[in-house]
Amino acid sequence: MSEAATFEEGKLGRIAVVRLRPNEDLVGAVEAACGEHGLSHAVVRSAVGSLVDAVLEAGDRVIQVPGPGIEILTLAGEVRPDAGGRPRAELRGTIADGKAQVYGGRFRRGANPICITLELVLQEWLPA
């Protein structure tokens, strides 16, 4: 019988207070910061920042939003280890461009450079 739901018991642990400097790739730098500090599982608790340009994925669509000064409005997601044990971030959220147009989707790895800063709070997820 196939399972319609699976569970992972655990609890929230330490809190990582993170800043990414300009021109770091959003997804790649979150993964790198986690790898550098031994954080294998985490959830996003809050994030405020901006991107030079943005590339979001929504279904089969790729949404390219030119900046600079794209505001990250909301960010959600988690970090989990990949098959090789390296941290892998799945991040999604909403952004606004300089014309105040709002877009949403999943942030593409290697395509979302930080403009001025990203202030990020992650909380460790500790599987039981």
Binding site: A16, P22, E36
Partner: peptide, 14 residues
């Protein structure tokens, strides 16, 4: 000039 490190992280207590 670019400052180092490019990714800063400090641990806070829950």
């Amino acid at each position: 000039a670019a400052l180092q490190p490019r990714r800063l992280l400090e641990w806070a207590a829950p």
